[in-house]
Amino acid sequence: MATHASTTHDVASSAQSRNLQLALAGLLGIFIIGFVGFSQLQAMHNAGHDYRHSMAFPCH
Rank of each mutant, 00 (worst) to 15 (best):
A43Y: 09
M44Q: 06
L22C: 05
S14W: 01
N19Q: 05
G26F: 02
G29T: 14
A43Q: 08
M55F: 04
H9E: 08
T3R: 10
L27G: 06
T8S: 06
M1A: 14
A43S: 10
M1N: 12
C59E: 02
Q16G: 12
S54R: 10
H49P: 01
M44D: 03
A2D: 08
L41D: 09
I32V: 15
A56N: 10
Q40L: 09
H45A: 05
R52V: 12
S39L: 07
F57K: 06
A2P: 08
H9C: 06
D50G: 08
G37C: 02
A12Y: 00
H49Q: 09
L28D: 05
L28I: 06
H4Q: 08
L27W: 01
H4W: 05
Q40W: 00
G48A: 10
H49M: 06
L22Y: 03
R18W: 01
L24H: 04
R18T: 15
D10Q: 12
A5C: 04
R18A: 15
Q21M: 13
A43W: 09
H4T: 13
A47G: 05
C59Q: 13
H4N: 08
H60M: 05
S54H: 03
N46T: 10
G37I: 02
H9M: 08
L20K: 14
S17K: 15
S17D: 11
A5W: 03
A2T: 07
Q16E: 07
S6C: 01
L20E: 08
I30H: 01
T7P: 00
S17Y: 06
